[in-house]
Design a protein around this nucleic acid. Structure first.
Lengths: 185, 185
DNA sequence: ACCTGAACACCGTTCAAGT
DNA sequence: ACCTGAACACCGTTCAAGT
């Protein structure tokens, strides 16, 4: 049912996600939905939460790859679900799925040499920038820019964040601040 | 009429901005609104555009102060209009007001020594990060954080961006990357 | 336990009519 | 030029009733 709502949002936009439309896709009357959901707001909450499902579990590898991999996954999710993704900014990341993703970032930052006391704030800064970009792209602020341009912008943003992390690290880093990211095929 | 709609959004949220509610605030019937606006979407566009009015014209002073002043103004606007502000991410900044703000940033970046060819992309990076923070705060993603914490986060974000600009500058900068921002009283 | 039909208040929008 | 009354299709939600 949440999947049905997400599919409708992807295909026809947020406004098309109506109790009637979701019910119809399930072959049921609108009132049947109230068995599984308190009201429409509750439905929307569930659909937004469903997005987090797509963020992959923390992979292996060096921390730079882990972070850029997560960032890429977030952007990809935004592109896949442009009308729902912006709603992510409306709720604190307190659900189990959200915590999992956040703690994955903590681990990577710790490995990068970020002081434990600064982990949370640094994560907030990074995720705000990445989410800001992903939402901007999904919501249409960058409508007039080419895909190539956006890929380039995003790469530059990640490079900036990587350099920031290195500069905040208490451990001596390598010479080169951050490796170049591979361009997606 | 746009102001009436914005006021309703501020007071009771986006859902309360209804043709009937706006009309009632103006002492008129809902149908009268269709003289001034094509439909509700058009009304919402106008309300969002109205937000840009609050962004102050580029002030005088060193570029660091100009940029942080604009960033502060943007965040203040987001806090004042939490339900409408996030909609800014849905439209390209192509209106005259938006261009004005953007060109103010260009001028500051040029003064900071950013290469002309990189002006637009650098501006996009910076405004994405600042808007991402402002929208996150307005929309409620940071609901569980204190005002002090958010002020601190924002200061750190601006510091990061300032350092980034310095590092991208083709001119030799001063020793200290960016001046500390004064805390608001 | 799960679903439905009928009903209600509310919404955006239209159109012909009023001044 | 500007506004209105009446009407329409649609929406979220309730409640009593059905299996």
């Amino acid at each position: 049912m949440l999947a049905a709502g997400l599919a409708i949002a992807d295909e026809k936009g947020l406004d098309a996600v109506t109790m009637g439309a979701v019910a119809a896709r399930l072959g049921v009357t609108p009132m049947a939905l109230y068995r599984h959901v308190a009201n429409k707001a509750d439905l929307m909450d569930g659909i937004v939460e469903l997005l987090l499902t797509e963020f992959p579990p923390p992979p292996a590898g060096p921390w730079t790859d882990r972070l850029s991999g997560l960032a890429d996954a977030i952007r990809a999710s935004a592109r896949r679900h442009p009308s729902v993704f912006p709603l992510l900014l409306q709720r604190p990341a307190t659900t189990p799925r959200a915590r999992q993703a956040r703690h994955g970032v903590y681990a990577a930052l710790e490995e990068a040499g970020i002081d434990t006391a600064r982990l949370a704030q640094t994560e907030r800064l990074i995720s705000t920038a990445v989410l800001g970009f992903a939402v901007s792209e999904a919501a249409g602020r960058f409508r007039s820019h080419s895909r190539r341009q956006l890929d380039d912008d995003f790469a530059r943003l990640l490079e900036l964040l990587g350099r920031f992390i290195e500069s905040e690290s208490t451990r001596p880093g390598t010479d080169r601040p951050v490796p170049a990211r591979p361009s997606s095929p």
